[in-house]
Design a binder for these strands. Structure first.
Length: 200
DNA sequence: TTGCTGATTATG
DNA sequence: ATAATCAGCAAT
């Protein structure tokens, strides 16, 4: 356990605000994954994107479907989907019930790299610079063992939850990545000083 | 039922 | 630049 560890679990109520308000505030907070009783991985959130109603890039823009169902749920749920048939993306559901809204977590930096990491992850995933292990929405899901079995789970309890952290000093706001619709909406935020942020 | 596309990533 | 790989979605 860390000595200077005054973090608190983030309550759903704090997340029950518009995604473009929550997204920048989530920078510096922790996404925490528990693999076993004494095996917890803590990722500091360094890059986020907001998706909201009326936003053409939002999965729920057209209509409610089986995939986007949890985006309509209460704030504080996890929305996990498969992308390109290969990777998973992890979102925090935000705003009021029935308002399809979420924050995509695009990058985390591990607070600490435990020696048991190779025991819970394929070696394929542990290669490269340590600070870039969670650099990218697909990579962070691999790192934290997030897949669709965690879709719709409550993010204020194990095995996956959010904790408060130190506020991020330097934040850059710009446009989102990998989209064909809503490309001009500046709903991406990242820690200007982080080594794990997606390239422009 | 078919065909295309996508909130990605590693590799050539 | 491109393959890997599959679910959602629209059109057939």
């Amino acid at each position: 356990m860390s000595l200077h560890n005054s973090t608190q679990i983030i309550e759903p109520k704090w997340l029950a605000r518009p995604s473009m308000v929550v997204a920048p505030e989530l920078l510096g907070c922790y996404l925490v994954r528990q693999f076993a009783a004494d095996r917890v991985l803590r990722g500091r959130i360094v890059e986020t994107e907001a998706y909201a109603p009326g936003d053409p890039a939002c999965h729920a823009y057209r209509r409610r479907t089986q995939r986007n169902e949890v985006m309509f749920g209460a704030a504080g749920l996890g929305y996990v989907y498969l992308i390109y048939g290969i990777y998973h993306c992890f979102n925090v559901v935000t705003d009021e019930f029935n308002v399809p809204s979420a924050v995509l977590i695009r990058a985390v930096e591990l607070a600490e790299i435990p020696d048991w990491l190779p025991e819970v992850l394929p070696t394929k995933i542990i290669k490269g610079k340590p600070e870039r292990l969670g650099a990218g929405p697909g990579k962070l899901c691999q790192l934290l063992g997030i897949d669709r079995t965690l879709n719709g789970t409550n993010l204020s309890q194990p095995p996956l939850w959010l904790e408060t952290g130190e506020p991020t000093r330097n934040i850059t706001q710009t446009t989102r990545i990998g989209l064909s619709q809503g490309v001009d909406i500046p709903w991406r935020w990242y820690d200007t000083n982080s080594q794990a942020v997606s390239k422009l």
